[in-house]
Nucleic acid binder design. Sequence first.
DNA 1: ATTATCTATAGATCTATAGATAATGC
DNA 2: ATTATCTATAGATCTATAGATAATGC
Lengths: 245, 245
Amino acid sequence: MSSDEKDEKSHKNQSEGTTAKEPRGARRKRATRQKLINAGLALMSERGKNGVSINEITEAADVGFGSFYNHFESKDAIYDALIEEVLNSIGDAIEVATNKLEDPAAILATAIRNVMNHAQRNPVWGRFLLRTAYSSEVLTLGMGKYMMNDLLRGMDANRFNVNDPVMAFLTVGGTVLSALALSIELNESTTNPTKNNAVQVANGLGYSLENLDQRTASSVLQILGLSVEEADTIANAPLPDIKDQ
Amino acid sequence: MSSDEKDEKSHKNQSEGTTAKEPRGARRKRATRQKLINAGLALMSERGKNGVSINEITEAADVGFGSFYNHFESKDAIYDALIEEVLNSIGDAIEVATNKLEDPAAILATAIRNVMNHAQRNPVWGRFLLRTAYSSEVLTLGMGKYMMNDLLRGMDANRFNVNDPVMAFLTVGGTVLSALALSIELNESTTNPTKNNAVQVANGLGYSLENLDQRTASSVLQILGLSVEEADTIANAPLPDIKDQ
DNA sequence: ATTATCTATAGATCTATAGATAATGC
DNA sequence: ATTATCTATAGATCTATAGATAATGC
């Protein structure tokens, strides 16, 4: 009503882009919160919830210590917020990429590749995701929810050949997680001299570590009963364009 | 030299059974250390290294606080000792069980089933193992080392049909880890009312969660190219007797 | 006499809050 | 006038050590 009108009016004086008019003070508050979230994510993805003090977070965020409590009532609270943030952004990373596709195999492959690419570009995000990997809500939140849906859909449509659905889920999920872990380590080791010895072992044996996203997608499809050829074809298809994150 | 002689001599007066004669004081020290290790394992497997204070460990171990520093110079030090303890006992759990076998498929299946059974009987151990799952030494320590060997041996012998060894390792390793996580949760949920919703979802869909060790072994063998029938046969074979742990 | 454990505590670190300062909205 | 941020600090918690007590080994 009247607040709608106000919104409309001020919207015109506003640069487009942000969702809507928002008073300067509220924006400042959100910005502070976001700085805390970003700092918390960076620190806690490396050292875990209890390896980081609130003071470290506010320092890294360049925010006064007391301000922390304007946004979160405890360290647990910010950690929970981080989990939500990370799990939600998985949804974005997957949904946007797959909503034009119909073949369950292509959907699953695209979802996997997008999660892995997202983690490559954003190792902090990926590392934090790995921390939440074995939580008891794995099936109903974040990546697990999408994988579960994709798997069930493909099984219903007889697109996948699966005789033990529980093992199929564990296999697909476990494969993606371990590939994610390797891929993140690999990404770091291009900047750091590579202290990771999985990378060294693989190199020593002459194994390539390129294109892990596509290889992971292909492997998963093969596990689900597709032929090597078809799995490779689908897993190497160009990814749909997204203007994501 | 002279200390060797002493050891020999006193060895005779001692009851057989423990590795060798050991003065009462040294045994007491080892016992205290073991109490600290056990308490640390139980607490840190649940809450992680930094979620536990040294005082909590000594209280749980029923040991004076200051004694902690007779055995470990810091919290990091005991955590490292726990990692070593857990990773070494994997070796025991696997080696004893597989040293009579020749078929690489049977070796791998037996190793997987033994690790999973060991974690079932000892959830603290299993939970801690999961914490170390994605360390950068995954391939050269603990479970990864054995899996790596078993895989390479089977590939060399053409027992496994693998076109991407890196993905084979990630797939096998990831599958075992996620199956281990589910299996531990499942074990807890028989005592607790089951807050774990993966278990609830599976039950809701009518999926069985029994015999996960055998099903995991079978799935892994299928991934490595064995037929469903052969994989099931090997994965369900009786486990060799061990007087382990 | 030696070695291990215990209790007690100093000093460091961390959390949560109170009260002052600065920025925004009318 | 209100709301957000800042600085400063009290009190709680935690680590590491010192010194006392108890158990072992000659």
